[in-house]
Design a protein around this nucleic acid. Structure first.
Lengths: 285, 285
DNA sequence: CATAATATGAAATACGTGTTCCATTTCAAG
DNA sequence: CTTGAAATGGAACACGTATTTCATATTATG
């Protein structure tokens, strides 16, 4: 009964499609009908149930199972995975861009860890590029571009982001103050900020209480606050004028700052560009 | 029992998300936990089953149903549709977003900059994954794993990498010394390093003379030195036991640290893992 | 501190799912 | 036309699912 034609059945949609096209004429009428529908409506296959799909095609549910088995799959559920994985892959374009490049992952634990973090980074980038709101990004840039001085608030895991932005801002001649440089007097330093300045707060779970405190402080003082965090529930998000969520994927519980770094650099450069345009138009007046 | 708060529950993810954010504080602890997870891992919600999702969150399946009902949905299945439709929409919108980006480059300079940096980061990750030598990576890990204390040397653009590694190493109980914390006395601090320790130097063009100087110093003292840099001609590469080249792609002249961050985190975690294995085998003796 | 109201966990339940089985039909070969 | 094999439809099955129920724990309230 088990009509296992040869080796293992395709796991990706492209090969599945090729197989159906090749074998279509040798398949029984009903099964060919199913195959044609599968290629035409892959999404229906991925999300629907055996009942809903079979009704859409106009066949019995059992026909779907037969179809799957004829092709070498364990059953309809097994076949459905092909269509689901297709959707997942389509969504992470960065990820398979990189996966396509990688040659052979040698077995060693070390290389697995490395590959794991590279994958996570690619995934984070893909997610970010999908979810980020360019309008809000532009708004944030506008706020920062007209600020007299930019205050950077970050501790612990987020600190590298702040120090990186501080370096680039400074290199481009934009006035910044990096909280945390001189320990202990941050509240006093940030106390000098006014509504003509702006602040960037960065914090990820578990949120540093100092960062939260400082962020609330400047927000209460009327300083436009922009936050970079990992969740809408973040305490610094609620007191911010604008906030950005960057969900870094983790590998075995650890998160790198890859996507955040790219985002922060983009923010920094965009602000610098906007300032250049501003001063150019000011010169004309 | 049916807690129908008001009108119909959201059918699209954005509104759902807003609702959770708004009502989070008025929700019971467990339900808030579910809500947070739902927003963070929408894909898991879309594809998983009640059992798998509840296990991932660490709650009972019944909690998911309660969560859905509290929010006004008929049940968990009903709620799941919100996440499924999100995926369907995303797939179409993502494709025409790429197209839109390519066609109307006019779409605000800001979004172009952001996309540019994200693309550059993805490119850097891909290049890194292709060029990195996993054998050398494993060797580097081995050296660092048996070091008494790890000295981190980095300045300027590379400093965020060092501070990020320092944070993670410290969190995992690995002894580290971050050069640059107390300005001016780095040579004296690094003078204490011996061949039982190890050092990581990081520097990119234009190479900070301090970093180069400190790296040479520890190398001469017999301390195993591992470098992360952007060229084989880097002055810190030649005095290193092992060195890694990470070529970050630039966008309009600016480079972020995305790929480097992923690499450094991988290195850090790999070292911690190796140490765990070491101490485990030591305990057996 | 006592008491009620609510929230939670764990097992029992009802339901829908994919799957299998078998009777019936279709088709081809003798 | 007969006979056999393959294909199909439809109902029965077993399994996993979401859901409900109820006892227990937790939190709020007087």
């Amino acid at each position: 009964m088990t009509d296992q034609n040869f080796d293992t059945p395709p796991t990706d949609f492209e090969h599945f499609r090729d197989m159906i096209v090749a074998r279509k004429d040798s398949l029984p009428k009903r099964l060919a009908q199913v195959g044609e529908y599968a290629i035409r409506n892959p999404d229906e296959f991925a999300f629907g149930t055996a009942a809903s799909v079979s009704e859409a095609i106009g066949v019995q549910p059992s026909t779907l199972v037969r179809f799957a088995k004829q092709l070498g799959y364990a059953g309809f559920s097994d076949l459905k995975d092909v269509f689901r994985s297709r959707i997942k892959e389509q969504r992470t374009s960065y990820q398979d861009r990189i996966r396509a490049l990688q040659v052979d992952t040698a077995g060693s634990a070390e290389s697995e860890i490395l590959q794991g973090f590279l994958d996570a980074a690619a995934g984070s980038l893909g997610a970010l590029s999908r979810t980020v709101d360019v309008t809000r990004f532009a708004e944030g840039v506008a706020i920062l571009a007209k600020a007299d001085c930019i205050y950077l608030i970050a501790r612990r895991r987020a600190y590298p982001l702040a120090s990186s932005m501080a370096y680039t801002f400074a290199k481009m001649g934009i006035r910044i103050v990096l909280a945390g440089s001189a320990p202990g007097i941050d509240p006093e330093i940030l106390g000098g900020a006014t509504d003509r300045d702006a602040a960037i707060a960065m914090s990820f779970t578990p949120y540093s209480s100092e960062t939260v405190h400082l962020a609330r402080m400047v927000a209460r003082a009327g300083v436009p606050l922009i936050s970079i965090t990992d969740s809408p529930f973040s305490p610094i998000a609620e007191c911010s004028r604008i906030w950005f969520e960057i969900a870094e994927q983790d590998f075995s519980g650890f998160r790198s700052l890859s996507a955040s770094m790219a985002f922060c650099m983009a923010l920094t450069v965009a602000v610098a560009e906007a300032r250049k345009r501003q001063s150019a138009s000011n010169d004309l007046e």
